[in-house]
Amino acid sequence: MEDKILTVEHVCKYFDSQTALDDVSFDINRGEFLSILGPSGCGKTTMLRILIGLLASDSGKIIKDGEDITNAPASKRGMGIVFQNYALFENMSVLENVRYALKINKETRAGSAEKAKDMLQRVGLGEYIKKKPYELSGGQQQRVAIARTLVLNPDIILFDEPMSALDVATRLSLRKELKKIQREFGTTMIYITHDQEEAFALSDRIMVMEESRLSQIDTPENIIKNPANDYVKSFVIDNLRQKIDSLAKYASVDGGAEA
Protein backbone atom coordinates (compact mmCIF):
# COMPACT_ATOMS: atom_id res chain seq x y z
CA MET A 1 0.00 0.00 0.00
CA GLU A 2 1.26 3.50 -0.84
CA ASP A 3 2.41 5.55 2.16
CA LYS A 4 1.53 9.17 1.41
CA ILE A 5 3.75 11.70 3.18
CA LEU A 6 2.41 14.85 1.53
CA THR A 7 -0.85 15.80 -0.13
CA VAL A 8 -1.42 19.05 -1.98
CA GLU A 9 -5.08 19.93 -2.54
CA HIS A 10 -6.36 22.56 -4.99
CA VAL A 11 -3.60 25.10 -4.38
CA CYS A 12 -4.00 28.45 -6.13
CA LYS A 13 -1.71 31.47 -6.08
CA TYR A 14 -2.11 34.85 -7.76
CA PHE A 15 0.38 37.72 -8.09
CA ASP A 16 -1.70 40.84 -8.68
CA SER A 17 -3.81 39.87 -11.67
CA GLN A 18 -1.53 37.04 -12.81
CA THR A 19 -2.24 33.41 -11.99
CA ALA A 20 0.91 31.66 -10.76
CA LEU A 21 -0.74 28.39 -9.69
CA ASP A 22 -4.14 27.26 -10.89
CA ASP A 23 -5.81 24.53 -8.81
CA VAL A 24 -2.79 22.25 -8.38
CA SER A 25 -3.33 18.94 -6.58
CA PHE A 26 -0.94 15.99 -6.16
CA ASP A 27 0.56 13.74 -3.52
CA ILE A 28 3.95 12.25 -2.84
CA ASN A 29 4.90 8.92 -1.20
CA ARG A 30 7.40 8.44 1.59
CA GLY A 31 10.96 7.98 0.27
CA GLU A 32 9.92 8.98 -3.23
CA PHE A 33 11.93 11.22 -5.59
CA LEU A 34 9.51 13.55 -7.36
CA SER A 35 10.63 16.04 -9.97
CA ILE A 36 8.55 19.07 -10.85
CA LEU A 37 9.38 19.69 -14.51
CA GLY A 38 8.45 22.72 -16.56
CA PRO A 39 9.76 25.74 -18.45
CA SER A 40 10.60 29.07 -16.78
CA GLY A 41 7.54 30.88 -15.44
CA CYS A 42 5.29 27.80 -15.28
CA GLY A 43 4.89 28.10 -11.48
CA LYS A 44 7.20 25.33 -10.29
CA THR A 45 9.30 27.57 -7.99
CA THR A 46 6.10 29.17 -6.63
CA MET A 47 4.85 25.66 -5.82
CA LEU A 48 8.12 24.88 -4.05
CA ARG A 49 8.02 28.06 -1.97
CA ILE A 50 4.43 27.34 -0.95
CA LEU A 51 5.35 23.78 0.04
CA ILE A 52 8.24 24.91 2.26
CA GLY A 53 6.22 27.80 3.71
CA LEU A 54 8.15 30.78 2.30
CA LEU A 55 5.06 31.86 0.40
CA ALA A 56 1.40 31.61 1.41
CA SER A 57 -1.09 30.14 -1.05
CA ASP A 58 -4.32 32.01 -1.77
CA SER A 59 -6.39 28.87 -1.47
CA GLY A 60 -5.99 25.13 -1.10
CA LYS A 61 -4.44 22.84 1.49
CA ILE A 62 -1.14 21.15 2.21
CA ILE A 63 -1.33 18.04 4.36
CA LYS A 64 1.75 16.29 5.70
CA ASP A 65 1.42 12.98 7.52
CA GLY A 66 -2.28 13.67 7.98
CA GLU A 67 -1.71 17.10 9.51
CA ASP A 68 -2.78 20.34 7.83
CA ILE A 69 0.42 22.42 7.55
CA THR A 70 -0.95 25.06 5.16
CA ASN A 71 -0.39 27.83 7.71
CA ALA A 72 2.51 26.29 9.65
CA PRO A 73 5.80 28.23 9.80
CA ALA A 74 8.53 27.05 7.41
CA SER A 75 10.71 25.76 10.21
CA LYS A 76 7.90 23.62 11.68
CA ARG A 77 7.01 21.70 8.52
CA GLY A 78 9.71 19.03 8.81
CA MET A 79 11.07 20.03 5.43
CA GLY A 80 14.42 21.34 4.28
CA ILE A 81 15.41 23.15 1.12
CA VAL A 82 18.50 23.37 -1.06
CA PHE A 83 18.40 26.62 -2.99
CA GLN A 84 19.81 27.50 -6.37
CA ASN A 85 23.45 28.57 -5.74
CA TYR A 86 23.01 26.91 -2.32
CA ALA A 87 22.86 30.11 -0.19
CA LEU A 88 25.73 28.98 2.03
CA PHE A 89 27.00 31.34 4.72
CA GLU A 90 30.26 32.52 3.17
CA ASN A 91 31.61 33.90 6.46
CA MET A 92 31.37 30.52 8.18
CA SER A 93 33.40 27.35 7.71
CA VAL A 94 31.82 24.23 6.22
CA LEU A 95 31.37 22.81 9.73
CA GLU A 96 29.84 26.03 11.06
CA ASN A 97 27.41 26.10 8.13
CA VAL A 98 26.12 22.64 8.95
CA ARG A 99 26.19 23.20 12.70
CA TYR A 100 24.55 26.63 12.67
CA ALA A 101 20.89 25.61 12.92
CA LEU A 102 21.66 23.04 15.63
CA LYS A 103 23.70 25.55 17.64
CA ILE A 104 21.02 28.26 17.55
CA ASN A 105 18.36 25.95 18.96
CA LYS A 106 18.71 25.23 22.70
CA GLU A 107 17.28 21.72 22.32
CA THR A 108 19.80 20.65 19.72
CA ARG A 109 22.84 22.61 20.92
CA ALA A 110 24.42 19.77 22.92
CA GLY A 111 26.62 17.61 20.71
CA SER A 112 25.91 19.80 17.68
CA ALA A 113 29.55 19.83 16.53
CA GLU A 114 29.74 16.03 16.57
CA LYS A 115 26.43 15.70 14.73
CA ALA A 116 27.56 18.17 12.07
CA LYS A 117 30.95 16.46 11.68
CA ASP A 118 29.24 13.09 11.36
CA MET A 119 26.89 14.42 8.70
CA LEU A 120 29.77 15.94 6.73
CA GLN A 121 31.60 12.65 6.95
CA ARG A 122 28.55 10.85 5.54
CA VAL A 123 28.32 13.17 2.53
CA GLY A 124 32.05 12.75 1.89
CA LEU A 125 33.24 16.14 3.12
CA GLY A 126 35.00 15.04 6.30
CA GLU A 127 38.30 16.54 5.26
CA TYR A 128 36.85 19.90 4.25
CA ILE A 129 35.23 20.96 7.53
CA LYS A 130 37.56 23.91 8.15
CA LYS A 131 37.30 25.31 4.61
CA LYS A 132 35.14 28.26 3.68
CA PRO A 133 32.40 27.65 1.07
CA TYR A 134 34.17 29.80 -1.55
CA GLU A 135 37.17 27.48 -1.31
CA LEU A 136 35.08 24.52 -2.49
CA SER A 137 33.98 23.41 -5.94
CA GLY A 138 30.32 23.69 -7.03
CA GLY A 139 29.70 20.02 -6.30
CA GLN A 140 31.21 20.23 -2.83
CA GLN A 141 29.13 23.33 -2.08
CA GLN A 142 25.99 21.42 -3.04
CA ARG A 143 26.92 18.64 -0.64
CA VAL A 144 27.41 21.19 2.17
CA ALA A 145 23.94 22.59 1.44
CA ILE A 146 22.45 19.08 1.52
CA ALA A 147 24.31 18.26 4.75
CA ARG A 148 23.03 21.51 6.31
CA THR A 149 19.50 20.41 5.49
CA LEU A 150 19.92 16.72 6.39
CA VAL A 151 21.41 17.43 9.81
CA LEU A 152 17.98 18.66 10.93
CA ASN A 153 16.43 15.29 10.01
CA PRO A 154 13.77 16.61 7.63
CA ASP A 155 11.11 14.27 6.27
CA ILE A 156 11.24 15.95 2.89
CA ILE A 157 14.02 17.86 1.12
CA LEU A 158 13.12 20.30 -1.63
CA PHE A 159 15.62 21.27 -4.33
CA ASP A 160 15.25 24.52 -6.28
CA GLU A 161 17.11 23.85 -9.55
CA PRO A 162 20.34 23.20 -7.66
CA MET A 163 22.36 22.13 -10.68
CA SER A 164 21.35 24.83 -13.16
CA ALA A 165 24.59 26.76 -12.71
CA LEU A 166 26.91 23.76 -13.02
CA ASP A 167 28.75 22.33 -16.01
CA VAL A 168 27.56 19.10 -17.64
CA ALA A 169 30.25 16.84 -16.17
CA THR A 170 29.62 18.06 -12.62
CA ARG A 171 25.87 17.69 -13.08
CA LEU A 172 26.25 14.08 -14.15
CA SER A 173 28.42 13.19 -11.15
CA LEU A 174 26.13 15.09 -8.76
CA ARG A 175 23.05 13.27 -10.01
CA LYS A 176 24.68 10.01 -8.92
CA GLU A 177 25.63 11.48 -5.56
CA LEU A 178 22.14 12.82 -4.99
CA LYS A 179 20.59 9.40 -5.66
CA LYS A 180 23.19 7.81 -3.38
CA ILE A 181 22.36 10.25 -0.58
CA GLN A 182 18.65 9.62 -1.05
CA ARG A 183 19.13 5.85 -0.89
CA GLU A 184 21.30 6.15 2.22
CA PHE A 185 19.03 8.53 4.14
CA GLY A 186 15.71 7.39 2.67
CA THR A 187 14.53 11.00 2.57
CA THR A 188 11.64 12.05 0.36
CA MET A 189 12.88 14.53 -2.25
CA ILE A 190 11.07 17.06 -4.40
CA TYR A 191 13.25 18.40 -7.17
CA ILE A 192 12.52 21.43 -9.35
CA THR A 193 14.03 21.40 -12.82
CA HIS A 194 13.48 22.58 -16.37
CA ASP A 195 15.81 19.88 -17.69
CA GLN A 196 13.90 16.87 -19.04
CA GLU A 197 16.98 14.63 -19.03
CA GLU A 198 17.72 15.44 -15.37
CA ALA A 199 14.12 14.70 -14.34
CA PHE A 200 14.13 11.36 -16.13
CA ALA A 201 17.52 10.37 -14.71
CA LEU A 202 16.62 11.13 -11.09
CA SER A 203 12.93 10.66 -10.51
CA ASP A 204 10.55 7.95 -9.37
CA ARG A 205 7.75 10.17 -10.65
CA ILE A 206 7.65 13.38 -12.65
CA MET A 207 5.11 16.17 -12.40
CA VAL A 208 4.97 18.16 -15.64
CA MET A 209 3.74 21.73 -15.34
CA GLU A 210 2.47 24.13 -17.98
CA GLU A 211 1.56 27.77 -17.41
CA SER A 212 0.54 27.50 -13.73
CA ARG A 213 -1.28 24.18 -14.21
CA LEU A 214 -0.31 20.57 -13.60
CA SER A 215 -0.30 18.71 -16.93
CA GLN A 216 0.62 15.20 -15.86
CA ILE A 217 2.11 13.39 -12.87
CA ASP A 218 3.35 9.85 -13.44
CA THR A 219 6.39 7.59 -13.65
CA PRO A 220 8.93 8.41 -16.37
CA GLU A 221 7.92 5.27 -18.29
CA ASN A 222 4.23 6.11 -18.27
CA ILE A 223 4.88 9.70 -19.35
CA ILE A 224 6.85 8.41 -22.35
CA LYS A 225 4.23 5.77 -23.17
CA ASN A 226 1.10 7.82 -22.48
CA PRO A 227 1.66 11.56 -22.57
CA ALA A 228 -1.43 13.30 -21.16
CA ASN A 229 -1.64 15.93 -23.88
CA ASP A 230 0.20 17.59 -26.77
CA TYR A 231 2.09 19.90 -24.42
CA VAL A 232 3.64 16.98 -22.48
CA LYS A 233 4.41 15.23 -25.75
CA SER A 234 6.13 18.28 -27.21
CA PHE A 235 7.86 19.63 -24.04
CA VAL A 236 9.02 16.29 -22.69
CA ILE A 237 9.08 13.58 -25.34
CA ASP A 238 9.99 15.59 -28.44
CA ASN A 239 12.75 17.38 -26.56
CA LEU A 240 14.20 14.13 -25.27
CA ARG A 241 13.89 12.55 -28.71
CA GLN A 242 15.81 15.45 -30.25
CA LYS A 243 18.67 14.89 -27.80
CA ILE A 244 18.68 11.15 -28.50
CA ASP A 245 18.65 11.77 -32.27
CA SER A 246 21.61 14.13 -31.95
CA LEU A 247 23.52 11.54 -29.94
CA ALA A 248 22.61 8.82 -32.44
CA LYS A 249 23.85 11.00 -35.30
CA TYR A 250 27.22 11.50 -33.59
CA ALA A 251 27.39 7.81 -32.68
CA SER A 252 26.86 6.87 -36.35
CA VAL A 253 29.54 9.36 -37.44
CA ASP A 254 31.96 7.77 -34.98
CA GLY A 255 30.89 4.32 -36.11
CA GLY A 256 31.48 5.28 -39.75
CA ALA A 257 34.92 6.56 -38.95
CA GLU A 258 35.82 3.37 -37.19
CA ALA A 259 34.51 1.26 -40.02
Binding site: I52, G53, L54, P73, A74, S75, K76, M79, G80, I81, F83, Q84, N85, Y86, A87, L88, F89, E90, N91, M92, Y100, A101, I104, N105, R148, L152
Partner: peptide, 26 residues
Protein backbone atom coordinates in the same frame (compact mmCIF):
# COMPACT_ATOMS: atom_id res chain seq x y z
CA UNK B 1 22.80 35.28 -2.16
CA UNK B 2 19.15 36.32 -2.20
CA UNK B 3 18.05 33.29 -0.18
CA UNK B 4 20.10 33.78 3.00
CA UNK B 5 17.06 35.00 4.98
CA UNK B 6 14.93 32.22 3.44
CA UNK B 7 17.44 29.64 4.65
CA UNK B 8 17.08 31.20 8.10
CA UNK B 9 13.30 30.99 7.92
CA UNK B 10 13.36 27.29 6.97
CA UNK B 11 15.81 26.34 9.73
CA UNK B 12 14.05 28.41 12.39
CA UNK B 13 16.48 31.33 12.60
CA UNK B 14 15.03 34.85 12.70
CA UNK B 15 15.85 37.56 10.16
CA UNK B 16 17.64 39.59 12.85
CA UNK B 17 19.84 36.63 13.79
CA UNK B 18 20.75 36.09 10.11
CA UNK B 19 21.65 39.79 9.87
CA UNK B 20 23.89 39.47 12.94
CA UNK B 21 25.49 36.14 12.08
CA UNK B 22 25.65 36.23 8.28
CA UNK B 23 24.89 39.57 6.61
CA UNK B 24 26.91 41.77 8.99
CA UNK B 25 30.06 39.58 8.97
CA UNK B 26 29.89 39.38 5.17
Amino acid sequence: NENLENVGETIGVSRWRIIKDVILPQ
